[in-house]
Design a protein around this nucleic acid. Structure first.
Lengths: 393, 393
DNA sequence: TAACTTTGTCCAACATATAGACAAACAAAA
DNA sequence: TTTTGTTTGTCTATATGTTGGACAAAGTTA
């Protein structure tokens, strides 16, 4: 049975439209909402009063008059509920309690070198419990938990493979749902970051955006038409394993010449060691190399530029395939920005097909942007608002 | 002003749903439509009677009884209007008159070695006029013209670059609109073929499908969520110019190591000549080489397999990036299928990330499938039905 | 102070989907 | 044949929700 259209649906859609308008323009008057949406004033009034009853909207005293009766300003009640979003990284766990606007209320950061799933899971659960205690009384309470992970996640929230954690076939969503009775969303870290940046990183969100996560491995999050694209099973964006050098270096994936064998954090560190840029008693790390580069270590800077060129090749491929509006480079290697940004932009400019006619921007975003956290919060919030709409039908 | 929802919209949407159901299930009774859509029988009755008034639907005598009153069968009136779809190839022009179901009524094929735009355009116009004369009297007449071209087309129907025709910045849509007073759609050939195959090539259309057009150049049509994806400006799918061999053969695009320098018809012919597989008085062509391969010419077969391996690398990239349900290889080099299909499938199977968990099928489609024509017809028909809906609002 | 503006509510009019009754047309069992 | 039950499609009453306009309240401006 397909979706039919009747009065109930019309009402739910209009109500969602009104709420969306209030969220985007908060604070705003009923009259303005009617003007912006094109709905009749009366319709807006009645829908708003329902939204107030449901605690999604609040009235906040009178606003400025524009030559007539002063408007009653409406606010989105971002405190009507909370989400908990987590970013499970390699070596750390970030977590945050957010309101319904995705604004971070409380933040937690923990180093985590243990990789055994049971141990990590225990830590996750206790972190969530801690954050839950920080919630103030609210009409809807915790509306969802979102979790970004560095691995391949299917549409059922199962982690099929997380090479850098050494995890395989972990039913993470199921495990969390066994403990917490709220909707749980598990998504790939790059996908979440892509969405988070699209939603919160721009004045006007780009139509098509690609986020290249260059960490230990390389992943790509694709936001096409402002919606996350994940492919048939959820595995889209395996950018790290496209071939850019035929018959190149072998990759553990079974392929050879994979992008991430040349452009990732791992590739960077391997090369640094191989070239003797790290002395015996130093531990190879991005930060260490950056320090050396800052001290004008020519060899390190040259290595950065080499890695940068490979990244540029990947970016060019992305542009040629997707004709996006925006490309964002994130995760660890975005820290190399000062040494590679100009070169990458120059390379892309001269190598992408018909670049001049395209209006693509290539930028960097820093790891402390919390893109993944924000993206996961967005997913849970949108999922919650959608579920409200549907249960009312 | 955003889109609001009211009774008019509800009615138009439901009417569209009823029409879609009739098109997909033709012949079908009103009762069945109600059952399939979930709409009330009365609602279906009144909408159907409007559709009949508008000549989109016809009644065709009584159907088989299933133990009660015999149903009145409804047919989609595919003869309510016509479209003309063209496939502008390198060296030929295909054209067809189709009904509103996209079924081809009249077909024209013409060799065309002249590349001067004015000459080609004249030929196009006269072909369209010829086909228009074949139309029978119908309520809506010609509802649109669709044209697939081997080049980069923007959203305004302008051909920015068609290297194999040596065209640049041609306002094709505008030129056609100056002559014909119907909606004109111009689209890249691979995009059209992708859509055409998705719509007509499967029992159940795949959710995400990629069509790799391997001709003189290489283009990719992307149908994601059963909708054509063309990127910000319409330039998405420039698969021919992604780098698969770093510092490889130079390409006229300014890049080096481009996919189409290794896997296209052009690459094939160049190599054949270079290796002396074509004698002085023969003209190098795909068909000639196929003939030699059929005669068990080992060197030619080896060349085919080499080209096949490069194609496989490209396909693997596509799978890793998009996690599609279906991949289709089309255009000239699909003729190499007998020599390369198995190798490609084996390569993809062993090189694509987590292949086993993915349900992707890699197939070939022959050039005489008229995929491009059918895709362009689909575009014009859908555009027409949409415009009807909107003008009624 | 009077006249005009803006805001938000209320109410009648209208459009359209739904449920259910009903008649027509048929098949199968008695 | 007759009867019974089923399926189809139409019709009517009802419910719902939007629209447009009237109107009061609360401002501003001349």
């Amino acid at each position: 049975m397909s979706r039919t259209w009747n009065q109930y649906i019309v009402k739910q859609e209009n109500k969602a439209l009104v709420l969306k308008t209030i969220i985007e323009h908060t604070p705003i008057s009923r009259a303005k909402v009617a003007q912006v949406t094109g709905l009749n004033k009366g319709t807006v009034s009645s829908l708003v009063s329902e939204l107030i009853d449901e605690h999604f909207v609040m009235e906040s005293g009178p606003g400025e008059s524009s030559g007539g009766r002063r408007p009653v300003m409406l606010l989105f009640n971002q405190a009507a509920g909370y989400t908990i979003a987590l970013d499970l990284g390699v070596g750390y766990i970030d977590a945050a309690l957010t309101d319904l606007n995705g604004e971070i209320m409380v933040k937690k950061h923990a180093k985590m070198h243990e990789r055994q799933f049971d141990t990590v899971f225990e830590h996750i659960v206790s972190t969530i419990h801690t954050l839950m205690k920080e919630m103030k009384k609210s009409p809807y309470g915790l509306v969802g938990i979102g979790m970004g992970v560095p691995g391949v996640v299917n549409h059922e929230g199962e982690i099929l493979l997380a090479p850098n954690l050494n995890w395989k076939n972990i039913q993470l969503k199921q495990a969390l749902n066994d403990v917490f009775d709220v909707p749980v969303i598990v998504e790939n870290e790059a996908n979440a970051a892509a969405y988070g940046e699209m939603r919160f990183g721009f004045k006007t969100p780009p139509k098509h955006m690609l986020y290249l996560s260059v960490g230990m491995g390389i992943g790509m999050g694709m936001v096409l038409d402002q919606k996350l694209y994940t492919g048939l099973n959820g595995f889209a964006g395996e950018m790290g394993h496209i071939t850019i050098v035929k018959d190149g270096i072998n990759c553990r994936c079974g392929n050879a010449g994979c992008f991430e064998r040349y452009a990732s954090e791992q590739a960077l560190l391997e090369q640094a060691i191989k070239r003797g840029l790290v002395t015996g008693n130093e531990e190879a790390s991005v930060d260490l190399l950056i320090q050396k580069a800052t001290e004008n270590n020519e060899a390190v800077i040259a290595l950065f530029k080499e890695i940068g060129e490979y990244i540029a090749i990947g970016i060019t491929t992305m542009i040629n395939l997707f004709n996006p509006e925006q490309i964002l480079i994130g995760n660890q290697l975005s820290k190399l920005q000062p040494w590679i940004k100009e070169d990458i932009q120059a390379y892309v400019y001269s190598h992408a097909i018909g670049f001049h006619s395209k209006k693509v921007t290539v930028d960097f975003t820093s790891p402390n942007h919390l893109s993944t956290i924000k993206g996961m919060a967005s997913f849970t919030i949108e999922n919650f608002l959608l579920s409200i709409k549907q249960t009312e039908e």
